[in-house]
Nucleic acid binder design. Sequence first.
DNA 1: CGTATAAATGAACGAAAATTCATATTTGGC
DNA 2: GCCAAATATGAATTTTCGTTCATTTATACG
Lengths: 106, 106
Amino acid sequence: MKTPDSSSRSNADSCAGRLKALADETRLAVVRHLMSGPCHVGEIQTALGIEQSLLSHHLRNLRDAGIVEATRDGKAVLYQLTPTMKRRRDGIVDLGCCRITFDPES
Amino acid sequence: MKTPDSSSRSNADSCAGRLKALADETRLAVVRHLMSGPCHVGEIQTALGIEQSLLSHHLRNLRDAGIVEATRDGKAVLYQLTPTMKRRRDGIVDLGCCRITFDPES
DNA sequence: CGTATAAATGAACGAAAATTCATATTTGGC
DNA sequence: GCCAAATATGAATTTTCGTTCATTTATACG
């Protein structure tokens, strides 16, 4: 069994590495979606209109970066922003190395 | 002659695109270096200990993303953060779509 | 002018990341 | 136990990105 929580593989340690996780249209959309609260995968999927498997890969990417975390909820899985980023409010995301304040509209 | 200032090609328009420009060890170092003031290419080069051509490519990337801009100064070229990001202070970088507050130490 | 210095460019290549597809895992209900 | 729903995983492929190298442009100076 690997490291049970997050940050197992990939580049979650450097600031550039964590930014890389956000530097993607899809993943950024996921994060911004989760900023309004926890969400099931299915909801995210229909919200973004993206293929199931692709979304799953992106979610793993975000998990590996320590940006989101998943918990089972019945046969669904609930995603939310990591406790590290709990300091978020009003669209502020805390990456540990830097804080990103998103403007209201994209 | 292409568009003279910045944002000619590449992904300078989307937030993810601009984040992508920052999501690189080298380019992030350049930006953080420029946050303390305008700088010649040569200085940046010796500061980062990186090959000339490689730095130049990264600088073009940052230029295309609208994050830095260049002005000639004799045979050297002076780089600085874009006016868009002028609202920066104390390590705050304004990407237009979001603001990034860097922690003092990396 | 010729030359040296500073920086930019373009092509080529390898490495990493994104996407797709097929398959596996987990869970709840019958 | 078996089936369907929800999500994850892995391999294969394509796309994008970073790096190197060789060459070019721009400027100053003698």
